[in-house]
């Protein structure tokens, strides 16, 4: 009954159960943090606007964001990205990621950066002239353990020029 194997088994089972419980609690504790991230994005200028088969835009963005409140003790990193989102006659939703960043800790979570688009902004067709679109800052919080969560700030009212350049 009280053999070595039996005791080792009991100890291991208890240790794993306790660890699982602590992980679950750590993940749950994320729910109680106050989150009020803010962001502001400007399009500084359109570098290029052409149509090779599909419309393509190159632009420079000014991104000003404060994501510090997303960090808790269970946060490993925050993945943040800016996407252009718009509707066309062909597609009910187009989401094109323009720029992204991995934020490793709270100290780097408040930033201002001027950058050209990291990924190509290409439409599926020729719908970008004069197009109104949203710029959305998404964030994806990756925990040390447990449930991942994501949210976004939608910034409407951006538009592209009426002519190619």
């Amino acid at each position: 009954m009280h053999s070595f194997g039996y005791r080792a088994n009991a100890l291991l089972t208890f240790a794993v159960t306790a660890l699982a419980f602590i992980c679950a609690i750590a993940s749950l504790s994320d729910k109680f943090s106050n989150q009020n991230p803010s962001a502001e994005i400007q399009i500084l200028y359109i570098k290029r606007f052409k149509s090779y088969g599909n419309d393509e835009v190159s632009l420079t963005l000014d991104i000003n964001a404060d994501l510090q409140s997303l960090f808790t003790w269970n946060t490993k990193q925050v993945f943040a990205f800016v996407a252009a989102e718009y509707e066309t006659p062909k597609n009910s939703l187009n989401q094109v990621s323009l720029w992204d960043v991995i934020i490793p800790d709270k100290e780097h979570a408040k930033f201002r950066i001027q950058t050209s688009n990291k990924y190509r902004f290409i439409d599926q067709g020729h719908n970008l002239r004069g197009k109104e679109f949203n710029l959305t800052l998404h964030w994806h919080v990756m925990p040390k353990t447990g449930k991942m969560f994501a949210d976004k700030i939608v910034m409407p009212g951006y538009s592209l020029p009426d002519a190619y350049k």
Binding site: F81, L93, N94
Partner: peptide, 30 residues
């Protein structure tokens, strides 16, 4: 529906092992 930013697991024809990567562009038809 799948949205940009989500981490999806996908299979590619001709590959045995599924890949876990992030969606960066999404175009959804009307």
């Amino acid at each position: 529906p799948i949205r940009a930013g989500e981490i999806v697991v996908f299979n590619v024809d001709g590959r045995d092992i599924p890949i876990v990567h992030r969606a960066i562009k999404v175009h959804e038809r009307q």
